[in-house]
Design a protein around this nucleic acid. Structure first.
Lengths: 193, 193
DNA sequence: TTGATAATACGCGACGTCTCGTCTAGTCGA
DNA sequence: TCGACTAGACGAGACGTCGCGTATTATCAA
């Protein structure tokens, strides 16, 4: 099957404009108020051009996530060498983000998008926490014998990520020392202080 | 301030019919497809009667939660005396619920409702996990010296609840032994095996 | 005690608005 | 000439508000 097609090819400009508009509106309005018509207007694009390439607004959000258009580098995981310090400072950092209205909106919107789209949920799981920075860092700690060899790193990562999600859903103010206690709860006897 | 009003009093029959219809539709359709018009039709009630007493469909869900119309007793926390056993069997139980389509839909719908309504989020936090059965059981374990006296019980509860939420969002199949490893991760050296 | 009156919850359903996803219609570049 | 593009009309469906007519209840005069 030869792939010689006549006519124009998919417009990269339109693709980028759509993703940028999606990310921008997602961040300032939240997922609840993200509409296809709003995105089309913001991107200066016909609605049909969006529907031609994406089946739903959740798919758009998933692509934004894939291209790293939604996370700031503030979510990055530190590596000072000490796993306990890194976890506490990362958690404290994210707690701080959650206390800003914009950060809270972004985080909660991501959760909302994940509830209705598998790809977003998977990507949230992988790209923010478990797949990328958090668990690899935990594995490195095991490698360096900072954690027990049989420490359940996947589950530790899930527990931490999950606690952050629950925090956003409950909307309870973060108590002082919460990050430390959470790391305590989760690292327990896996660490060799 | 006279509290004597003229006119008919709020109809209990309508209130109950609305909450029952909400719970029923929530469970079979999910939060995404829950509509005010659908609830009104199902309850045999005028839309205005709903809007007179509840500001949004999320508030309806919050009230259903408050009256225990959404949780089955399958979410209840066991108490055999051994905290580790109880945690593992409870987690395994909930994992099992999540593997049924209906259970997964219910759980994910609750998360979706929580993202857009503070009261739902709070109630999810309190009534299912942290406030009611899970953390009190952990406190009892501390009391019975099955857990370290300074074990961060709140955070342990949050980590477990959070892991369950993340599991639903990522939609990953539950691996064998996952419940045990999660309890391991979270109980760590707090327990005295 | 009785009946008139006023207030108000109710079911019903029309209204205007918004967004959805589909669909033409016309333009333009490879 | 083909196909992606912008523009926007379209029907469907849900939103939240409004007014109608009816039913129910407290107040008060006779």
């Amino acid at each position: 099957m030869s792939e010689h097609r006549q006519g124009p090819v998919r417009s990269e400009a339109a693709r980028v404009a759509i993703l940028e508009a999606t990310a921008r509106l997602f961040q300032i309005r939240g997922y609840e108020h993200l509409t296809m018509e709003g995105i089309a207007a913001e991107a200066g694009v016909g609605k049909q051009t969006i529907y031609r390439w994406w089946p739903s607004r959740a798919a758009l959000v998933a692509d934004c996530l894939l291209e790293g258009r939604l996370f700031s580098e503030r979510f990055n995981f530190p590596n000072t060498g000490d796993i306990r310090t890194d976890l506490v400072s990362w958690l404290g950092n994210v707690f701080g983000i959650l206390e800003e209205p914009a950060g809270e909106l972004l985080w909660r919107s991501l959760i909302a998008a994940a509830t209705e789209n598998e790809a977003v949920g998977r990507r949230l799981y992988e790209s923010l926490g478990i797949g990328s920075s958090l668990v690899p860092r935990l594995r490195a700690a095991v490698e360096a014998s900072d954690l027990r060899a049989d420490a359940p790193v996947e589950e530790i990562g899930e527990a931490l990520m999950g606690a952050l999600i629950l925090r956003a859903l409950s909307r309870l103010p973060t108590q002082p020392g919460s990050a430390e206690r959470l790391v305590d709860a989760v690292l327990g006897d896996s660490s060799r202080r």
